[in-house]
Design a protein around this nucleic acid. Sequence first.
DNA 1: ACAAAAATTAAACAATCGTTTAATTTAAAC
DNA 2: GTTTAAATTAAACGATTGTTTAATTTTTGT
Lengths: 208, 208
Amino acid sequence: MTTEFNEKQLEILQVAEELFAEKGFDGTSIRDIAKKANINIAMISYYFGSKEKLLESLIIFRTSDLRLQLENLFSEDLSPIQKIEKLIELYINRLNKNRCLYQILHFEFSSKKRIMDFKVFTDVKKQNLLSLQKIIAEGQEKGVFRKNINTALLPPTIMGTFFHFHTNRPFYEELFNLKTEEAYDHFIKTEVISHIKQTIKAFLVYEN
Amino acid sequence: MTTEFNEKQLEILQVAEELFAEKGFDGTSIRDIAKKANINIAMISYYFGSKEKLLESLIIFRTSDLRLQLENLFSEDLSPIQKIEKLIELYINRLNKNRCLYQILHFEFSSKKRIMDFKVFTDVKKQNLLSLQKIIAEGQEKGVFRKNINTALLPPTIMGTFFHFHTNRPFYEELFNLKTEEAYDHFIKTEVISHIKQTIKAFLVYEN
DNA sequence: ACAAAAATTAAACAATCGTTTAATTTAAAC
DNA sequence: GTTTAAATTAAACGATTGTTTAATTTTTGT
């Protein structure tokens, strides 16, 4: 699978991403997509084969360079705590940047209806978990982090916090008075990331 | 709205809950529901009016006694930390018990397609947040918790951790070798709850 | 036992779904 | 300029959707 998408295909992918995230995969018809993208409904089958393959193309298109950044992180000249902080920034900024897609995945992944090639994603998750475990182990050896840490439960806290915040966006927009897209985005990049950093750092350091 | 559901209606609600959680609201047809519940497709319109009203009935049916437990918690004779621990148990056990429904809500809530009476839920959320804030404030006055805590970001961490774990259930089932429903349920009630408790306690106590 | 109400059924409804076809227009190659 | 391929279109396809209808069975009240 290559990424040789022409302008029309990119337009379709972008519109599909918005609509899928907004109304769900099943809730979006190819006529909705065609209408919003100003193309004929047949073009979707013509370019992607089917509606399901359109989603697959979308996923591949958006999650190609996910893994490398984390792998390189370990080798950088940073303290374990700094690495954790940077890892959280990488994670959240990525989720935040591709909100729409991850909202789709978040649901479609939990759906038993679609039988897709999700092995790609479990593999990516395992790799990411290994990268995280290396950093934690390093921190423990240096005596910065405590022992007996169940590393696999850290990503749920990191990503889950963001997702739950974003899923309940209208509630928090009202609560924190975030009227514009920029204000919301800024709140995530400062307050939410800071909260997650504090939480994880405290968890790693604090002896019970 | 009363809860005078007969056996047939309860059967429909239960089957609908399972299918909605499994395949999504749009992904489930009333014929799927009727088939699994061994009833005629017309019975759904007959009893609930429409497919959307069936979902509304389901939500009301499952979220009636949510608020009281938290309000009573503050008055109990417990330390702030014990209250937080009990609050987390209340939260997660409730989410875990009604996994299916909350999975539906989790998605439908973020969907802009359905325009339902979600004001009920934002009100519940605000009430729950106030209950939590009272406990945090008490802990701060007693010098147990640190200052400058953004209380509103705690529920995302508590609930988000659980949701993200559950959304990626197949991944963690493999990782922790949780082959049966009982093993999975037990892991949540012990490991996941314990992890969240540790995380939140560390966050509340640990000075940066 | 009989009448009225409730429950249940099969069938049909119009609407929408994803996909395909066949014809036409546009672009590229020579 | 002609030929060939790619892009685009409108139309139709069969399947499925949520809902309604009208007839039938079951239950209930008297």
